[in-house]
Design a protein around this nucleic acid. Structure first.
Lengths: 169, 169
DNA sequence: ATGGGCATGTAAATCGTTACATGATTCT
DNA sequence: AGAATCATGTAACGATTTACATGCCCAT
C-alpha cells in the first residue's frame, strides 16, 4: 500500500520518471523500502488513473518516450493525509536470524560461516554508507544514511559478542 | 519461501501444532519474521503433501482436533540444505523512515509528532524485551533478544540526535 | 567491443495480510 | 462478567519478486 506514498512523496519534491524514482530509492531510500520496477510502473499507472499524478510525455531519439510524472493537488492531499495517519509498523524479514536460530542444532561450523558471512556483508555496507554520507547536504538524506550507519555499527558490535560466545564454548 | 524453513526448523526441535508455531514466532522470533496463521496453516498443509512433515491427530473434547506435526527425514534434509545456501538479504519496509523523509516538506509539526511516536513505541518495545531477556536459558534465544535490544537502543540514540537537530533549526 | 546507464514496460507466480468463522476453557 | 488462551481453518484481496523483452548511448 505504501508504494503509492513513496511515489507521491518523491513527486511532491519534483517531477520525475519511473526510472528516476527507482534510482532515488536505490540511492537514498533503500533503508526504508526496496520498490522495484515491477511495482513502480504499475503503481504509477494506477495513480494516473486516479488523477493523483499527471504525466508529460517527452519524445527522445533512440530511447523510449520519457514520461515525466508530477503530482496533482489531489495527490498532494492524499500524501498529507497519509503523513498524519498512524504509521504502520516496520515489516521485516531477516532470514539471517532464522538461520542463526536453527543452525546450531545442525552444525557448529554452519553457524560460524553464517556469522562470518554476515560480518562481511555488514562491513561492505558500512563502507558504502560511509562514503555516501560524506558528501551530503540534504539533512533528510543525512538522517537516513545515519540511521543505516547506526544500525550496522551496532550490528557489528553484536556480531563480536556472539562470535566470542561461540568461540569460548 | 522461507516460511517453509521456519516451520521445518521449529519442528526439528520438537513436534508441535500450528498454534504452537505461531506462538513461538510471536514470543521469540518476531525480530526475524512475522508469519501469521494465514501463511502458517497453508504452508503446513503443503509440507505435509510433500512429505516433509507428518501429522498425529489428537482428539480433544470441546476443541478442534489437535494436529501435532513432526519433521520427516526428508524435511530434515531440506532444512540442512537451506542452512547451507547463501542467505537471502533482509527484506525490510520502514514506513516510518519514508514519512521522516517526506514530512518536512509538508509540516514541521508532523515531523516532530512522528519522531515522538516512534520514540514511545521504541521505548515500549525495549521494556518488553528487557523483561523477556532476564529469564533466559537458551543462548539462541538470548542472541535474538540481544539483537533486538541492540537495534532499539541504537535507534533511541539516533532519535536523540535527530530531535536535537530539529529543535535547534 | 563490453558493460553500465538510460528508459519503458509485462507476465506469472507466489507471497502475505486481514478479516472472518467457530467455540470451549481458564484466568482475572 | 469478560478477556485471554487454546485450536482449527478459509477467502479475498493486495503486494512483491523475478524474469523477460527491447534497444540506444557513452565511457573504458
Amino acid at each position: 500500500m505504501s508504494h503509492r506514498y513513496l511515489i507521491l512523496g518523491l513527486l511532491a519534491e519534483q517531477p520525475m520518471t519511473g526510472y528516476d524514482i527507482r534510482k532515488q530509492v536505490k540511492e537514498v531510500l533503500s533503508t526504508a523500502t526496496n520498490a522495484s520496477y515491477g511495482t513502480l510502473y504499475p503503481t504509477l499507472h494506477k495513480l494516473l488513473q486516479e488523477d493523483a499524478v499527471q504525466v508529460d510525455e517527452i519524445d527522445q531519439e533512440g530511447r523510449p518516450t520519457k514520461k515525466v510524472y508530477r503530482i496533482t493537488t489531489h495527490g498532494q492531499a492524499e500524501l498529507r493525509q497519509w503523513l498524519r495517519e498512524p504509521t504502520s509498523a516496520d515489516r521485516i524479514k531477516r532470514d539471517f536470524l532464522l538461520k542463526l536460530y536453527f543452525a546450531q542444532q545442525v552444525s557448529q561450523s554452519d553457524l560460524q560461516r553464517l556469522l562470518a558471512e554476515r560480518r562481511d556483508e555488514t562491513e561492505a555496507l558500512l563502507d558504502t554508507l560511509q562514503s555516501q554520507g560524506e558528501s551530503l547536504d540534504d539533512p533528510r538524506e543525512k538522517w537516513i544514511i545515519d540511521y543505516a550507519l547506526m544500525l550496522y555499527r551496532a550490528e557489528m558490535a553484536w556480531l563480536d559478542r556472539v562470535e566470542n560466545q561461540i568461540a569460548s564454548a
